[in-house]
């Protein structure tokens, strides 16, 4: 009990909390971020309609503008799309997919990047060299291209029909593989510095196993760059997922993400039906913006040089 109390007091006293309290923009974007995350977790309860229940769909209610009511008396706050689905509901479910893919891809990138970065820093020698050269080469190609390529290769292996079933896992793999380098580099850099410090040498002299030193001693001390990069990476991953889905090689229409919804809406933009694109688009921008703002703030708040 006492330990928890101390932890809470330490948190409120910390510099991080202090700088959080002082910036209204950060409070707003953190609140927005939480709201969006919560509403995508509770999408099935919040959404006014189930957009994937085909029995409730009718083409008569297709392409209705916002604030309209169809013949059966159903009300659509943000209008309907080309299949007569309520846009508010598809956005809630779509955001769920977008956030899920983004978070999973970043977790994958963190695990892969951190373990390779720690390994490179700790072992040194040819392994370090090899890993960092691979990282250099990959870094000179933009993430979106790497993700496209991984996607294309998996598609060639699996064929089109199976692709749809595993699309979400392929996306996570592709986006994760396109982002691990940043984590590996940051962790390696930080670990190289930490490795020289006395506590690591002391642990080694005491005969602590290497794996234990890596996980128990080095990892906690290199975690703040990981946190900063992760926040910004989520934004990048969400954009990458949306882009792939927009290009038609991400999430299928039966299981849409925000990018897929925007892709569908794009076809109707020329005839003036702007709401099919606009609302998923603005949701995507808010989502990415709030993560970017939080990431910027974390980077400044955790950077000792700026204090």
């Amino acid at each position: 009990m006492n330990a928890i109390k101390i932890k809470v007091v330490a948190m409120i006293d910390s510099d991080l909390w202090y700088s959080f309290k002082r910036s209204p923009l950060i409070i707003i974007s953190a609140t927005l971020c939480m709201l969006l995350i919560l509403s995508s977790i509770f999408a099935p309860w919040l959404a006014p309609y189930n957009p994937f229940d085909e029995s409730t769909l009718s083409l008569w209610a297709a392409n209705l503008p916002p604030l309209s009511t169809d013949e059966d008396g159903f009300f659509y706050l943000l209008g309907t799309d080309n299949q007569g689905r309520d846009i508010l509901s598809t956005i809630l479910y779509g955001m769920r997919t977008s956030l899920g893919v983004g978070l999973a891809a970043v977790v994958f990138a963190i695990v892969l990047g951190t373990s390779l970065g720690l390994l490179a820093a700790y072992s040194g020698g040819w392994l370090d060299n090899l890993l960092m050269r691979v990282a250099d080469i990959q870094l000179s190609f933009p993430a979106i291209l790497v993700a496209l390529l991984v996607n294309g290769i998996v598609k060639a292996v699996l064929g089109n029909s199976q692709m749809e079933m595993v699309a979400i896992y392929v996306l996570i793999l592709a986006i994760g593989l396109s982002e691990w380098v940043q984590f590996a580099r940051a962790v390696r850099g930080a670990a190289l510095v930490e490795k020289q410090k006395e506590y690591v040498q002391a642990a080694r002299t005491m005969g602590v196993p290497t794996l234990m030193i890596l996980l128990r001693h080095l990892l906690p001390n290199v975690s703040s760059p990981i946190l900063v990069i992760a926040t910004i990476s989520i934004a990048v991953a969400i954009i990458t997922e949306a882009t792939l889905s927009f290009l038609g090689i991400g999430m299928p229409q039966t299981q849409p993400s925000l990018g897929t919804l925007i892709r569908v809406g794009g076809d109707y933009l020329m005839s003036g039906e702007w709401w099919i694109t606009f609302f998923p688009g603005i949701t995507l921008v808010l989502l990415v913006l709030s993560f970017n703002l939080l990431g910027d703030w974390l980077r400044d708040a955790l950077n000792p040089q700026l204090k």
């Binding site: 688009g281 995507l284 913006l289």
Partner: peptide, 22 residues
């Protein structure tokens, strides 16, 4: 610039199409 990195390229394109073409 914060908006610039938060709006995906394809959305910018659609926005410009809607504004300047439609």
């Amino acid at each position: 610039s914060l908006m610039g990195i938060s709006i995906p390229t394809f959305l910018t394109g659609l926005l410009l199409i809607y504004l300047f073409s439609v």
